[in-house]
Amino acid sequence: MAAYEHIIETRGLVKRYGKLTAVSDLSVQVPRGAIYGFVGPNGAGKTTTMRILTTLITPTAGDAYVAGYSVVTYPREVRRAIGYMPDFFGVYDDMKVWEYLDFFAACYEIPERERPKLIDDLLALVDLSHRREDMVEKLSRGMKQRLSLARTLAHDPEVLILDEPASGLDPRARIEIRELLVEMAQMGKTIFFSSHILADVAEICTHLGVIESGEMVAQGTVAEIRRQLMPTREIMITLLDRVDEAKEALLHVPGVESIQDMPDDHGRKRIRVDFGGDDAGVSEMLKALSSRGVPVVNFAEETRDLEAVFMRATKGIVS
């Protein structure tokens, strides 16, 4: 096995269904240990990509590598390296919670004598120890999702591939899943998960890939993407008066690209400055205003949330 830099890597991945191209020349690169958020609108090709990575479908062209193994040539090695959670919960209606885990542990060839301890540990991790003897179908949606996560960990895989792990959950369950993902990352797992809801992704990801219509729009660390898609910073300035004078002063500061008037805030004037400079430049702006005696009430950099970044990246299709 050749040494590999990325634990998940696709090269020129293409998947066509007849005339429809679900994935087109996609290159995903997930570094080891990352929490990689794979974001895009519904139908962008996220699930298709994940099904290729989990050896469930074969690519039309290109190849994908997981832990250094090609999904086309070494599906079994890939399966050993991944824990997969689809975007639905597979229910066996006649199984107890521990039996569910026991069954999948057995499918992953974990010896019988090691399973009871493993099941205890997994249930404790996802906080379901008290539901051990209950039937799976009796669990709430959030609990089923947690049980699913426990299942993906049964064979101690290097990578977790999770398709929409938080979809359809209530806010509380969503937070629980998010916390679990962080905990799993701390256990050393690489997490590759998809979502069309940005809030899920924004808080916990180290890396992001934005997919739209089967193509990668942007990829990298969260900071890189922010820079890549939003090269300027936004400074919001609230003034008592003398707006035109303030604009005049600011335009002389290097790095200021444009200034927009914003709606008044309780009679106070507001302007927004698009700024391409560094922190020293920001301080220059404030100095320019105060040296002229412009009455500044508030001066703050708007932190642009990822939502805004994605709105720009995906032309507003992301919900």
């Binding site: 099904r51 989990t54 050896t55 991944i82 597979g90 999948f104 499918c107 060839e109 064979h155």
Partner: peptide
């Protein structure tokens, strides 16, 4: 039951 994919990704 949508468990087929789960089984297929096991060993």
């Amino acid at each position: 039951h949508q468990t087929y994919d789960l089984l297929r990704t096991t060993l």
